[in-house]
Design a protein around this nucleic acid. Structure first.
Length: 970
RNA sequence: GCCCAGGUGGCGGAAUUGGUAGACGCGCACGACUCAAACUCGUGUUCCCCUGGAGUGCGGGUUCGAUUCCCGCCCUGGGCACCA
């Protein structure tokens, strides 16, 4: 039997299609097993060898579980909405659906070429109206829900409305923004717009005026996870903070549950840590400082900025009536911005959040954020000019500037003082941009003795620094803040002598008693902006009745993307959907013009696979109950705080609303590492067309230029003619030396088209066979690790496959020998263990070892070979299929049961004991496995070499580890 | 700066609960086959001052015995970054 990979690949893949071997059944009596890959965005560049790494691993697990009798769900689909297709549409006028479809075709071909066993009958595409109909439906579910903190659960908005009409906001414990409140009577007298304005503060999908990340270059807003260092994640364009009326998702309501849920998940520590950090829970207290009367006159004169109750109602109405995309008036902006951060509207009180209330006696000044809405109210006339100038300067600085420049300390005194709650001492109020409006209350009590940022400002401004926590070691808080959370309170009145932990507790209860503060938990996690000013996304199913948003009737879904003449914003800056001719609901109401962000469709796709064809529900509850959580999810770690957090959020919400029976979507998560490329560089003399061989490059002034790795041979030499033909700019190339090899320099880099180091999996499959590609990707190393791709290494796995096929020459119909069975069952045992940990690199080497062992035997039983074909199948299914057919197997080897492990073949009857003298291995001795420690010791002492290595000493101790080792201590 | 993961031959990497460091493969060298090359097969391949010694990023420690456990550092990759 000759090894014919390309022929076998095609034949096996045809067989699998004919028999539909990868179809997941529902309903079924078998136990389910759900293996999921993060679905790709189908880019125009196609797949390179790095992409399928995770798919191959998950494919192996799927195939293994199928052999073990599980009903395996292993689907694939496409995350098909996205910016590249839209950019291309803007440039060419071609509808993004067309490019997307072409790219998907190519991806599907490439995936199939590798023999990945996906159940394509369940394929989903997020841009397909039959799919996004349900994304829109989920949006409506969230729009129609609120979070009831009393029971820690999302509930339909009707229960909130019932509460409001019975008791108003009294006794309501809900996740919300701002400080909405009303009585039952007020609620009863409100009109529809007023009611909706109030409900908006509670809905899980809501619209509010808030500071958003606006990316002018992309012409859209971005979620926090899409902004990296003040630049957009896609494209690296600058991002600025800007108040805008936007749709958001109230993920913050689930902060605690998203944090707690991590404990039960089998995910990597680093991803869990990232999520914990992103959620950023901190425990502490809110503390209120009374603003001293001296500033009262000023406060009164600034009432218009602090309109209090009346302002809140007014801004609500504006919100309800506000035009989409139109920024409201400054006053209402500030109200809502402040509301979002939870600042109190009372200018007579300055509220701060602190995790160290124990240091309250060390608070020598207060700092409020420059954006703080009450800053104006707290500024005296004498300081107004300075504060205004500072505020303007801070507003002008972009997020990025502020981050880049954390060294410079700046701040301005407001002229106002607050009263220390315990000592009554006046404390000056400052403003400085190290305090952020978006976190806590936008104000801090500065304790320069025990916080380095406060310390820096105190130093710069000459403010007093006092020590209120003592350590066992001497500390000088004048020189440096002492930030450790382990010490004893000092110079702190009733806290003196208490440990930090106790002092925090005591300080809080004292504050609570006096009504000046309370224990609080604060989260860093912000609500996620949900609208995008873009075309290529799911339309948001909202219509406006007299400016009041209302969900479309479910019967009107899907709300399909309209045809537009251009994929650009309108002349007045409206999103592209505003270009549609009649963008109105069935009833004729104007529709929302922003679309959903990329993470919408990917937040629930794993549910749709369970019931992909369902036309009446996103997923049938019985199907969701049967398949349950994803058993194994494989994908890149770059989605740590985006996709993986959002999909957890949606899953929790859908669970609460009764649509599914579990809260957490992904039981186990594995992050595959990156496969790097080995780039090739030629040295070219600057300003010329002359390329110099790498070893001579030092003699010239050269520049290093990327050249395509396909032009390079195994000896790192570039093909002269191929280089000239590569691109027109290289046609004139001359070489030094004129004859002989031209060496290139090589370097490991990220695999990317622009670095010309991309290796294509389908090209490799055509050359070596799909199985060789699969095996080699796995053989490269542990799945989670990054490692460079070196095509030369393919020879090793090709050799293995050829050897495997050559075993057929030894086949016979008789009984298997003990020796071949030992190799077989040793292999079964090893593979079963490896599947649990996804250690497929060692699986491949274990198979190599077994095949090497069998190659040394004169003959092999058909039964052994047939079992081997099944063992090989998850890794090299095409070759396994060919062997199976040759051995007369029925149907497809994919459906064959896994060979049972016979542990009697694993026990050895003799043990090779290494013998150490003082920890150094000197010789080895074979002894029966049944030998007792005493017998082993006796055998060692009787051994001829023992005397030699003892060198006349008497052994003090002989350590015998049964079955392992002997160590003679002399 | 903080958090997480990781440093083992020329290269990718292997090593149950602490028990023969370098499995398996690439590369390299030599040999066989061949007119020759490729393919294929076989042998060898951690290093060194080689009857021995050293060695898993560095320095200590625990132990009969440490890649594995503990303490202190260095480096690489990833995440977060004024979060009070």
């Amino acid at each position: 039997m000759e090894y014919r990979p390309t022929e076998w690949d095609a034949r096996a893949q045809q067989l699998w299609r004919d028999l539909a071997v990868y179809r997941a059944d529902f309903p079924s009596d078998r136990k389910p097993f759900y293996v999921l890959d993060m679905f790709p965005y189908p880019s125009g560049a196609g797949l390179h060898v790095g992409h399928p790494l995770g798919y191959i691993a998950s494919d192996i697990v799927s195939r293994f579980k199928r052999h073990q009798g599980f009903n395996v769900l292993h689907p694939m689909g496409f995350d098909a909405f996205g910016l590249p297709a839209e950019q291309y549409a803007i440039q060419t006028g071609q509808h993004p659906a067309v490019t997307t479809e072409t790219n998907i075709e190519r991806y599907r071909e490439q995936l199939n070429r590798l023999g990945l066993g996906f159940d394509w009958s369940r394929e989903v595409q997020t841009c397909d109206p039959a799919y996004y109909r349900w994304t829109q439906w989920i949006f409506l579910q969230l729009f129609g829900a609120w979070y009831n903190r009393a029971v820690e659960r999302a509930e339909p908005i009707e229960t909130l409305v019932a509460h409001l009409s019975a008791r108003g906001t009294e006794g309501l414990n809900a996740a919300c923004h701002g400080e909405p409140n009303c009585t039952a009577d007020e609620w009863a007298s409100m009109n529809a717009a007023q009611r909706e304005a109030l409900l908006q503060h509670y809905r899980l999908a809501y619209r509010s005026e808030s500071l958003v990340n606006w990316c002018p270059a992309l012409g859209t807003v971005l979620a926090n996870d899409e902004v990296v260092n003040g630049l957009s994640e896609r494209g690296g364009h600058p991002v600025v903070q800007k108040p805008m009326l936007q749709w958001s998702m109230r993920i913050s309501a689930f902060a605690q549950r998203l944090l707690d849920g991590l404990d039960e998940l089998n995910w990597s520590d680093s991803i869990k840590e990232s999520q914990r950090h992103w959620i950023g829970r901190s425990q502490g207290a809110r503390i209120r400082f009374n603003v001293l009367a001296r500033g009262a006159g000023e406060v009164a004169s600034n009432q218009q900025l602090v309109s209090g109750e009346a302002g809140e109602v007014a801004s609500n109405q504006q919100l309800a009536a506000g035009e989409a995309g139109e920024a409201g008036e400054a006053a209402s902006n500030q109200q809502l911005v402040a509301g979002g951060a939870g600042a109190a509207g009372d200018a007579h009180v300055l509220e701060v959040f602190s995790t160290r209330p124990d240091t309250i006696f060390g608070a020598t000044f207060m700092v409020v954020a420059p954006e703080h809405p009450l800053l104006g109210a707290w500024t005296t006339e004498a300081q107004r000019a300075d504060v205004e100038a500072y505020r303007e300067r801070a507003a002008r600085r972009s997020e990025r500037d502020r981050q880049a420049d954390t060294k410079t300390v700046s701040g301005v005194f407001t002229g106002t003082y607050v009263e220390h709650p315990f000592t009554g001492a006046p404390i000056p109020v400052w403003t400085s941009d190290y305090v952020l409006m978006g976190y806590g209350t936008g104000a801090v009590m500065a304790v320069p003795g025990h916080d380095s940022r406060d310390h820096a400002l105190a130093k710069a401004m000459g403010l007093p620094i006092v020590q209120v926590v003592a350590s066992s070691e001497p500390v000088d808080v004048q020189a440096e803040a002492f930030e450790a959370k382990s010490g004893r309170a000092t110079a702190s009145d009733f806290l003196d002598g208490l440990s930090t932990v106790d002092a925090i507790d005591r300080a809080i209860s004292e504050l609570e008693q006096r009504g000046l503060g309370e224990r609080t938990v604060q989260y860093r996690l912000r609500d996620a902006v949900f609208g995008r000013q873009r075309y290529w996304g799911e339309p948001i199913p909202i219509a406006y009745r007299d400016g009041v948003p209302e969900g479309l009737p479910v019967a009107e879904l899907p709300l399909k993307l309209p045809a537009v003449d251009k994929y650009l914003p309108t002349e007045d800056g409206e999103p592209p959907l505003a270009r549609a001719e009649r963008w109105v609901s069935a009833e004729g109401l104007p529709l929302e013009t922003t679309t959903m962000p990329g993470w919408a469709g990917s937040s629930w796709y794993f549910l749709r696979y369970m019931d992909a064809q369902n036309g009446t529900a996103a997923v049938d509850r019985t199907a969701a109950d049967y398949w349950g959580q994803v058993d194994l999810y494989v994908g890149g770690s770059e989605h740590a705080t985006g996709h993986l957090l959002y999909s957890r959020f949606w899953t929790h919400a859908l669970h609460d609303l009764g649509h599914i029976g579990f809260r957490e979507p992904f039981k186990r998560l594995v992050n595959q590492g990156m496969i790097q490329g080995i780039s090739a560089f030629v040295h070219r003399i600057e300003g010329t067309h002359t390329v110099v061989s790498a070893e001579l490059a030092g003699q010239y002034a050269t520049q290093k230029l990327h050249v395509d790795v396909s032009l390079i041979n195994e000896r790192n030499e570039v093909d002269r003619n191929a280089l000239k033909a590569w691109m027109p700019s290289w046609a004139q190339t001359e070489f030094i030396p004129a004859e002989g090899p031209i060496k290139v320099e090589r370097e490991v880099e990220k695999m990317s088209k622009s670095k010309y180091n991309v290796v294509n999996p389908d090209a490799l499959a055509d050359q070596y066979g799909a199985d060789a590609v699969r095996l080699f990707e796995m053989f490269l190393g542990p799945i989670e690790q990054s490692k460079p791709w070196d095509t030369q290494g393919m020879a090793g796995v090709v050799g293995f496959l050829k050897k495997s096929v050559r075993l057929m020459e030894k086949r016979h119909a008789g009984e298997a020998s003990t020796e071949e069975l030992r190799a077989l069952h040793g292999l079964i045992e090893k593979l079963q263990r490896d599947v649990e940990t996804l250690s497929f690199n060692t699986s491949v080497s274990a198979m190599m070892i077994a095949v090497n062992a069998w190659s040394g035997l004169p003959q092999l039983a058909d039964a052994t070979l047939r079992d081997f074909a099944v063992l090989l199948e998850p890794f090299a299914p095409h070759t396994a299929e060919a062997l199976w057919a040759e051995l007369g197997g029925e149907g497809s080897v994919v459906l064959a049961p896994y060979p049972a492990l016979k542990s009697e073949y694993l026990v050895k009857d003799s043990v090779n004991y290494p013998v150490q003298f003082n920890g150094k291995t000197r010789y080895q001795i074979d002894l029966p496995a049944s030998a007792t420690p005493a017998e082993v010791e006796a055998a060692v002492m009787a051994h001829e070499k023992t005397a030699h290595f003892l060198e006349g000493r008497t052994p003090k101790k002989v350590i015998v580890v049964p079955g392992r080792i002997v160590n003679v201590v002399a």
